[in-house]
Amino acid sequence: MKNEIRTEFLGVELSSPLVLPAGVLDISFSSMNQVSAVGAGLVTTKSLTIESRKGHDGPVVAEVEGGMLNAMGLCNPGIDAGLEELKLLKTAAEADVEGPGNCPVNVSIFATDVNGFSDLAERVNNSEADFLELNLSCPNVMDEFGVPLAASEKTVAEIITAVKSVCVKPVIAKLSPNVTSLTRIAGAAAEAGADALCMINTLGPGLEIDIEAGRPVLSNISGGLSGPCVKPVALRLVYECRKSGLSLPIIGMGGITTGEDAVQMLMAGADLVGVGTAVYYRGPGVFGLINEELLSFLKRKGLESITDINRII
């Protein structure tokens, strides 16, 4: 029997359900191309803003038990340079006819209001992007911009409506776990016309203190939590969205590190699975490794395709 991890997402064929999420190895075309070549089915760019941002001062990461705190501070070269990077990525991928390094690209954008998102979305609409992702949920810039936009159903709906009116490419809303009811926000995003959802962004934020210095470890004081310790929360949130009757495709992420984690995420109701912090534990080759692990799970269970386990609970 042939085992199959190829899948389809919003009408586009993907070689694997694994997604490189925003913020991990995705500042330059080279990193994204490499991740695509080692087995990701979809890569996401760093969240791009209108102007370039240096990001927060270091330390910007702190490993904690079972995961990672990060407060990168949305460092990115700005939308124009970011879309140049996308062009280079598409050119590099085309040249790489032999390899699988030719996966679709999801461009993530971040703004602080409806107009900002529309402006960015228009530019992405005129680019080579395959999908547009709205980062409504960064927890690391609250000092600067206040509570993430994903905290309000009304704001989420307004942004999606505005973006849909200027962008014909499929729009993915990236949601925050740090809200009272993610299910309600997800419902609002669906109603406003989002084509898919991506969840979860980092949890928290959290705090780690250096007791010798009597200071927070991160210069931003707090940072978003990711990695294996957030996986149960991510699984539960994806599951609850499905149980609420949501039928949109979901990119599920948060702590996925092994093939078995990915199987859980697919069973919980995700259609694609993001793999971010696991790059720290298993290297960029983690995409190829999880693909293998998914295949061997299918084989062991006598299943043909990952769609056989998708949304089964």
């Binding site: 913020g23 991990v24 190895l25 995705d26 500042i27 330059s28 075309f29 080279s30 990193s31 191309n33 490499q34 991740v35 760093k46 990001g55 270091g58 910007v60 990461v61 490993e63 990672m68 990060n70 990168m72 460092c75 590099a92 971010g276 912090t277 790059v279 720290y280 290297g283 960029p284």
Partner: peptide, 17 residues
């Protein structure tokens, strides 16, 4: 260098990453 642990991509070189 930002993370120094291989996840942020800040130090990646072109074209191989």
């Amino acid at each position: 260098m930002k993370c120094a642990i291989g996840i942020c991509g800040s130090c990646a070189t072109d074209p191989g990453g």
